[in-house]
Design a protein around this nucleic acid. Structure first.
Lengths: 107, 107
DNA sequence: TAAAACTAGTTTGTATTGCAAACCTGTTTT
DNA sequence: AAAACAGGTTTGCAATACAAACTAGTTTTA
């Protein structure tokens, strides 16, 4: 065996701020783009407005994204950017997941 | 690009019965062994007894494991076995995770 | 042999959370 | 001017994870 089985305890260490599917979806989108508008984010994730609003607030409180409020003409527009800390957290989370996935093509 | 970026909506489809870290840890241990005793499971996962008890009950209600209550001499002993359905759910979950992980060694 | 301490788990209580309905503020349409 | 709409936020609620407290029985101690 080249890789030891994952320590089950390490599974409990998964970063819950990232692990929550709604927030993982948000971070995944943000990580792929420079800046993302609220409504676009809502469309691609499928989250309700309320749900999206509260999760982005949590991610902001965690320092994983920043919110930019502006006006496009006279209509308000909220956009988000992932922070370096957020990107690092997402990458760390990906590493944690890889560590716990069995090798592909296992019987 | 050989693989498209994960659809953020699919992240929301992650099976929450498996996604919860405590239960993922439990299933991961059960998948690696024929049969696992309550106390052993508690030790390797690091979960409290109460927490382990309630999560195994949920997994049983979901049909992902079965509970066997027996006596070793005169002391009671509860052991668990993953079901075929549970194993399938865990494998499906692994596939979902792989689908959303970026290719390794990405810049 | 009675009491105290331990074992193996379950139930109860609580604080947190994810979620959408209802709401709010302003803009555009009728 | 009123009604409808847009872009979000706040509120209320049901579900959840978690450990403290409890239960039922066993072993040890006095």
């Amino acid at each position: 065996m080249t890789r030891p089985n994952p320590d089950p305890r390490s599974i409990l260490d998964l970063d819950r701020m990232v692990h929550e599917p709604a927030r993982l979806a948000i971070l995944t989108v943000l990580a792929a783009a420079e800046e993302v508008a609220f409504l676009f984010l809502q469309k691609v994730t499928g989250l309700s407005k309320g749900n999206l609003s509260s999760h982005t607030q949590k991610l902001e409180a965690a320092g994983f994204l920043e919110t930019v409020k502006a006006f496009q003409g006279r209509i308000p527009s909220t956009t988000f950017r992932i922070t370096e800390e957020g990107r690092a957290a997402l990458q760390a989370y990906h590493r944690q997941l890889r560590a716990l996935l069995p090798k592909e093509g296992k019987p």
